[in-house]
Structures are given as structure tokens and as C-alpha cells.
């Protein structure tokens, strides 16, 4: 606080509260809708306080009245969890290894590999949809977890983050380790990895969210409803033309699809924020 300006502080709080209302309202609204009955939702204006059908709707979502193409919400949540975890952990492993090679070794082709990884930034799935799909078909990976995750595991961003971090590690540390007789594997395992825990935790949060929120790729790769992620499943449930859409269940499933990633961000907030900030430097 530089100077005392009570009106300024009041204004700041006021603007922040307005901001939070705007940010939180769509989620709150959907939560309220998830505690109402379908006819109540379809008769706007909808009440803005939660109704009494919470257990009924969430129970119905899990109970499997053939919720989404004959697949239960449990299965969809499981699929999404597997996909998100595999992508996050896979990206971290292969990126930390690549960054380690690029920063701590000198070998022919080092810059070439660095640029190869860099260029993938410019080739997101969206610009090579069909041919990548073709590769997955040729490899027989349609409707598999491998197909859902493997192509998304390469990560220029994560490699850069680790590279940035590794560059800040003083040469003296490596010299000391080498004088004490540590080889590259030992150095990685006993010194570099423990030093990277914060970065790994931070990256994990971001990549878990990335994996959880995938849309285009699972849309292409899954035909079988059993392999859908929850977001794709939800999209298939929503139809404004179809009068049979059970909006109360849609709302409950929307909330269920949001809770795990939001919980990760809020519970791991410290790592999340610190990681994002550190990685930018």
C-alpha cells in the first residue's frame, strides 16, 4: 500500500466482486439448474436458488438410466481421468528427459532436435486433422486409450519450461556432482529431479487440465460410446431439437465434468500459480 485511499480501495473491492460475479455466475447457474427438474429448467426464468432435486439428479446421472448412448457417467469419468493422467504424466516424463538431453549434453544435432521440438508449437492438431487421423487409423488406434493420448504427449511447452529451469542450475553444481563421481543418471535422479519437484507439480496441474479439457482429438478418435470422454458424451446428450433431452441430467453431468479439474486447480493453487509464474521467466 503506497498511500491511503479508502475510496480507491472500496472501488477495487467493488470491481473485483463484480468480476467474480461474472466469472462465477455461469457455473453457479448450472449448479442451480442441476438441482431442479427438467420442466423447471425449461420454463425460464429459472429460480436462482438451488432446488430440492440434488440427490435425485446426481443419483440419476450415476444410476445409468442409459444416460449417454448406453454408457454410464462413471465410465466416462474414468475414461477422462485415464486420458488426463496419461497425458500429464507422459508429457512430463518425455519433456524432462528431452530438456535434460538438450541442456546437459553436447552432441551433434542438438540444435536440430531443439528446433524440431520447437516447430511442433506451430503444428497443433487443428492444422493437420485429417492426416493425423489417418495415421491413427493405419496404426489401428481408433477407440483406444493409446490413440487418445499418445499423439498429445509430445510437448514443446513442457520441454521449454524444464529447459528454462535447468539453465538456471549453476555449473558448479554439476562440477561438484562430477567430482564426487556422479554420472548423468545419478545426477538426474539425485539432484535434478528433487530440484524439479515444484516445477513438476506445477506442470502437472496445467497438463492435467489440458488433458481433461481435450475436445477435438477425442471427438475424432472415438466412435464407440464406451471410449468417450465426459465432455464428448455431454455434447452428444445435448439436443435442442429433441424434446426428450433430460436437462436436469445434462446439468448434473456438466457439473460433474467440471468438478475434478476445478478441484485440482483450487487445491493445488500454490503450485499452479508458482509454476505458471516461474515458467514465464
Amino acid at each position: 500500500m503506497i498511500e491511503k485511499r479508502p475510496i480507491g480501495a472500496l472501488l477495487a473491492h467493488f470491481i473485483l466482486i463484480i468480476g467474480i460475479l461474472i466469472v462465477a455466475f455461469p457455473i453457479y447457474y448450472t449448479f442451480v439448474a442441476s438441482t431442479l427438474t427438467s420442466p423447471e429448467i425449461m420454463a425460464p426464468p429459472m429460480p436462482l436458488l438451488p432446488g430440492g432435486h440434488f440427490l435425485e439428479n446426481y443419483g440419476g446421472a450415476f444410476g445409468g438410466i442409459g444416460t449417454i448412448g448406453g454408457v454410464g457417467v462413471g465410465r466416462l469419468l474414468l475414461n477422462t481421468t485415464i486420458v488426463a493422467l496419461t497425458i500429464a504424466i507422459g508429457k512430463i516424463i518425455i519433456s524432462i528427459l528431452s530438456a535434460y538431453a538438450i541442456v546437459f549434453f553436447s552432441f551433434p544435432g542438438r540444435m536440430l532436435f531443439f528446433w524440431m521440438i520447437f516447430i511442433t508449437l506451430m503444428l497443433p492438431v487443428e492444422v493437420r486433422i485429417l492426416p493425423t487421423y489417418q495415421v491413427i487409423v493405419d496404426l489401428g488406434l481408433i477407440d483406444t486409450y493409446t490413440g487418445l493420448t499418445l499423439p498429445l504427449i509430445a510437448s514443446a511447452t513442457a520441454t521449454f519450461l524444464f529447459r528454462q529451469f535447468f539453465m538456471t542450475i549453476p555449473d558448479e553444481l554439476i562440477e561438484a556432482a562430477r567430482i564426487d563421481g556422479a554420472g548423468p543418471v545419478r545426477f538426474f535422479k539425485d539432484i535434478l529431479l528433487p530440484l524439479s519437484y515444484t516445477n513438476i507439480a506445477a506442470l502437472f496441474v496445467i497438463l492435467f487440465i489440458y488433458g481433461w479439457t481435450q475436445y477435438l482429438w477425442p471427438l475424432l478418435i472415438t466412435n464407440d460410446n464406451n471410449m468417450n470422454t465426459i465432455i464428448i458424451g455431454l455434447r452428444k446428450m445435448i439436443s435442442f431439437v429433441d424434446a426428450d433431452t433430460q436437462w436436469n441430467l445434462v446439468m448434473a453431468i456438466t457439473i460433474l465434468a467440471m468438478v475434478p479439474p476445478i478441484a485440482v486447480v483450487v487445491l493445488m493453487q500454490r503450485w499452479f500459480v508458482k509454476g505458471l509464474v516461474d515458467s514465464e521467466k
Binding site: 447457474y29 425460464p44 487440465i209 479439457t213 475436445y215 465432455i231 455431454l234 467440471m258 486447480v265 493453487q269
Partner: peptide, 28 residues
């Protein structure tokens, strides 16, 4: 804390939330 949650919401779901609010058929 209250401002960061939407980061965790998938774009498709963000779209659906807005659709729930602004759809002519059901949006308050």
C-alpha cells in the same frame, strides 16, 4: 481463488454454460 476456476473449465463446457444462460429456449 474465486477468479481462477474457469481456467479448469473445458472450452466446450464453457460454451455450453453460456448456451444454458443465453439459449432462447431455456436461458434465463
Amino acid at each position: 481463488t474465486l477468479l481462477i476456476w474457469p481456467y479448469a473449465v473445458a472450452p466446450a463446457i464453457a460454451g455450453m454454460l453460456w448456451l444454458f444462460l443465453f439459449s432462447p429456449a431455456m436461458g434465463t
